[in-house]
Design a protein around this nucleic acid. Sequence first.
DNA 1: CATGAATGAGTCTTCATTCAT
DNA 2: GATGAATGAAGACTCATTCAT
Lengths: 199, 199, 199, 199
Amino acid sequence: MPKPPPTSDRRAELLLLAAALFAERGYKNTTVRDIADAAGILSGSLYHHFDSKETMADEILRTFLADLFREYRAIVEREGDPRRAFEQLVHASFQAIDNNHSAIALYQNEAKQLRQSARFAYLDDTDREFREIWLGTLEKGIASGAFRADLDATMAYRFVRDTVWVAVRWYVPGGKLTAEAVSAQYLSMILEGFQSREE
Amino acid sequence: MPKPPPTSDRRAELLLLAAALFAERGYKNTTVRDIADAAGILSGSLYHHFDSKETMADEILRTFLADLFREYRAIVEREGDPRRAFEQLVHASFQAIDNNHSAIALYQNEAKQLRQSARFAYLDDTDREFREIWLGTLEKGIASGAFRADLDATMAYRFVRDTVWVAVRWYVPGGKLTAEAVSAQYLSMILEGFQSREE
Amino acid sequence: MPKPPPTSDRRAELLLLAAALFAERGYKNTTVRDIADAAGILSGSLYHHFDSKETMADEILRTFLADLFREYRAIVEREGDPRRAFEQLVHASFQAIDNNHSAIALYQNEAKQLRQSARFAYLDDTDREFREIWLGTLEKGIASGAFRADLDATMAYRFVRDTVWVAVRWYVPGGKLTAEAVSAQYLSMILEGFQSREE
Amino acid sequence: MPKPPPTSDRRAELLLLAAALFAERGYKNTTVRDIADAAGILSGSLYHHFDSKETMADEILRTFLADLFREYRAIVEREGDPRRAFEQLVHASFQAIDNNHSAIALYQNEAKQLRQSARFAYLDDTDREFREIWLGTLEKGIASGAFRADLDATMAYRFVRDTVWVAVRWYVPGGKLTAEAVSAQYLSMILEGFQSREE
DNA sequence: CATGAATGAGTCTTCATTCAT
DNA sequence: GATGAATGAAGACTCATTCAT
């Protein structure tokens, strides 16, 4: 009989279950007991690992955001060309949807409510940095001539942000459509538009 | 002393309050007492008008959806040109965000959970018709040459759908930005793309 | 268009409806609104006729009990022969089940609970008189040699009381079995017993 | 310091309390808090053991009915002589009133209402088997000449059924009158009748 | 680490009753 | 007499959390 895995693994395992449930049913609709049931333990036992339901959500979000921003920052630091930076941001985002599906769904669906609690105030910072990265890239692209000069950068930022992240609602990790493919399609639509070029 | 409004107005009034709260705090996070408080009555008194919290959400959604589809259908029936139909659909959608902000927020944020209950099964039909209208218009546009031949219609449909509706999260009815203006900007971005035309 | 009937008739009408519902669903399970619905009015409107739900039950019971005891007293006063008095009491009781079915059901099923409220304290007097009448008749019958000398009068009293009144649970007024017929059968069983006479 | 009883005992303990209250005050009149108070815990804590008030009633009834029918079946299978079978059925019934007083009171008083809910539909089966056992025994007794040939078996069945069970209303377990004694008295009355034998 | 029992605050809902119109 | 809106008290049930074992 193999020994149970060390503590920290168990935590991660539980967080994965929790994230999946939060994503699927919503944070409020997921009870601590749901999570415990999924883990095959009693609800009270969860409190040996986490001191509250909020803590679980917190940890899920922090982990995901740390990962995402590490990537984002690497991209904008490494990539001088705004158009290519943009493409890589989009790509990294869809990759994240693929890898951290539950966490992103949680973020998308619950951030607004969670943010109201002091504990999640850091989500405001997150938004700010998020905005800086994307908006900065778009503005550089406009300045460099890569993007249309008449583009309203703020509006474009919202547009892209929403478009990319909302995909978490329909994208199925491990499904037929790879993150790669979706990313390419999105870029093509966003960059070139729907309209056929009348030459 | 102004006369109190007739009966049915009271219902509508309460639904408006409920919708605003559902939109702001989420369905689950809004208590029946929150709604009653907002209306200045006791929570039990709400049950004089509605037989459950669910009924309120139901009525809010049905009313909004009926309105929206009336418009959508009128557009696709009236407008032969797919490009113009598309523009009008986008326009009507932003107009709806302006007029029915709370209901749309409720729909966007809670439909997934509500749909699980038999009572809201009709949301599946709604989705189907929604898809038919938008996808049909996009496909006609591709066929007519208005839209790029290499456009993946299904993907484009998702793209537009998400893009348009998610705007409910940041659009402020009665704010500086009119629905008209946002609609125009969106169309410009979607149709022409971000990329500057290299002529 | 005929005028609506005068007040007191309306009261009686409402009491009939209430009694039927109390009997069918139980007192606690019948809401004031159920009664109002049955009468085709709103629940608040009932309070023009009765000042409480309790009042309705009270009135139903009092009316029935007054009727019943009027008959009971007449029988024991009129009829000298205990055996014939007994038969007439049984008969009158089944007749009452036929005529006041709802009221008796209410009495049978709810008296125990209602009695706890001071308002229904008179039910204790009722029981006492009830007991005197039946037990008296049985004892006279034993003394006169009409009933078995070794009969435990108290036990016999309980036996008859229960036997007769519980019939309200299955007796259907206006059904195939008349009160007359049931009464005769009961008497035959009670008086002669199940056992075949081994002569 | 005595150890607290094992788990399943706690359930049984709570059911006993609940049954007593249901029997005493009626199902509807007994609040979940009443039960919890009687157990010295908070009302919400009851839900650790039972998932609803209905479940408690259900479990109480099922347990009692299973016990009773086990006995009934044993009697009719074992005892060939209808007269003796009849006596034993009566005896077992009064014994049950002694042992399961609360459950029987609950059954007597609330079955009619509970039966309306699908959850308690099995009570119809119970009634059917109940009827088969008693009616069968009576009919065999009539055929064998043990009971009067002119006895209306169906009516006699109702008569006995009601007579026996209604005793739950006045029989006090542990009182002066033993189940044994009551049973004997009842049998004497039912079998021989009130009437003195005119030899 | 986990169990099982319990807490306590809160949620939706019910319902008898009141009252201005 | 009746309506329609509301009250207020209570009821069943939920759930995050605690804690002795």
